[in-house]
Amino acid sequence: MLRELDYKQAVATMSATLQELGVSLDIASKREQIQEYEQKINQQDFWDDNEKAQKVLQKSSDLKNIISEYEGLNSDLEEIEILIELGLEEEDESIENDIEKSIELLEDKIDKVKIKTLLDGKYDDNNAVLSINAGTGGLDAQDCAQIILRMYLRWADQNNFKVKTLDLISDPEAGIKSATLLVEGTNAYGYLKSEKGVHRIVRISPYNSSGKRQTSFVSVDVTPELDDNIEVEINPNDLKIDTYRSSGAGGQHVNKTDSAVRITHIPTGIVVQCQNERSQFANKDIAMKMLKGKLIQLKELENKERIEDIQGTYSQITWGSQIRSYVFQPYKLVKDHRTNAEIGNVDSVLDGNLNLFINEYLKMNKMKNK
């Protein structure tokens, strides 16, 4: 006999959750925003500024996707209700399997949307600039930095984010010394901000002839890419700008011109660099955006009113601030030291399956800020 009461209770719970989600997502407000964007799109001079037009189109599309996803959840719930009634009318117990699978699938979809409602930080919906640096430890640390880089590239691909390499310093023998990526897509920073800190890898080193276990450290920094409409005043006298020859891939043009740019913010010691673009001007523009993101983040962290008020060494990430360990030996385990979330399948995590850790961090952060 169909478990009518159990199914109807599950439907009632999901219905209540969807109503709460509708409030959290502020669906009505998003519909109004779409109408405002549509008015802009229909203006004759809309395409006069192509870059600005593309951003408006992207924002409108993002809002439409949110609404479509929410409406899809409600449609799925209605289908489950119909399926339950059908099973009762026909007294068909074979339909029970379909009902249970549908409920399980919808609960999973609702959980994923609930996670998105946790992304309510000021810059959470922005693109993210993610920097990876090998710690001390020579080739082994550099190899581990490359493993972490690959992990984020896999994660971005699996979650439909675009990635652009802004800077990459490889080592001719093995691994990378550092890499900086621009991860593009809605909520890229909101998700990746949880990855900021030191990542610890314990394994039998392929570079250790005696086959001993070795611990390597990789630091990850994440800042939001700021929109052009966010103004950040930086005193030009506080900047040291160096140009140098690009070392990455890019053919003869990269090797023959001093197109790479390194900018140092003297009061804080923040250093950013970019060598991906062909021209020095383009590299400088991207490097300045990276610097602004770091300064804004640091300004808010230290509760300063102005950028000029920030002094001292930029040291948000220290080698004691380990956020996660990836252990291959003597057992296999990935553990997040902030949330205590853990997975025994290390290879799966390094293949980009990071969402458990990201989601647990977002939930923990929300509880802290209540």
Rank of each mutant, 00 (worst) to 15 (best):
I263T: 04
P330C: 06
M288N: 09
S321F: 13
D227M: 10
N255I: 11
D309W: 08
T268A: 00
W319M: 11
S219G: 05
V334E: 07
E308F: 11
S259F: 06
Q252F: 08
G312N: 04
R306T: 15
A341C: 08
K332V: 09
N237D: 15
N235C: 08
A287D: 02
K284A: 13
E302Q: 14
L295I: 08
I230F: 08
T215C: 06
E225L: 14
I310W: 02
S246A: 15
N229Q: 07
K240W: 01
S219F: 03
S209R: 09
K294V: 11
V271I: 15
Y207R: 03
R245P: 06
N255C: 12
E233S: 11
V327G: 02
N235S: 08
K212N: 15
K256T: 15
L298Y: 15
Y326K: 04
H265V: 13
V271K: 07
I323H: 06
I317Q: 01
L298C: 01
T257Q: 08
A260C: 02
S216M: 04
P330H: 02
N235I: 12
E231Q: 12
N283W: 09
D285C: 02
K256L: 14
R324G: 15
Y207P: 00
T339H: 03
V222P: 04
S325E: 08
F217C: 02
R278S: 10
P236N: 03
Q273R: 11
D228H: 05
A282D: 13
N283Q: 02
T268S: 09
Q322C: 10
Q311T: 15
C274W: 03
L298H: 12
V261L: 06
T268M: 00
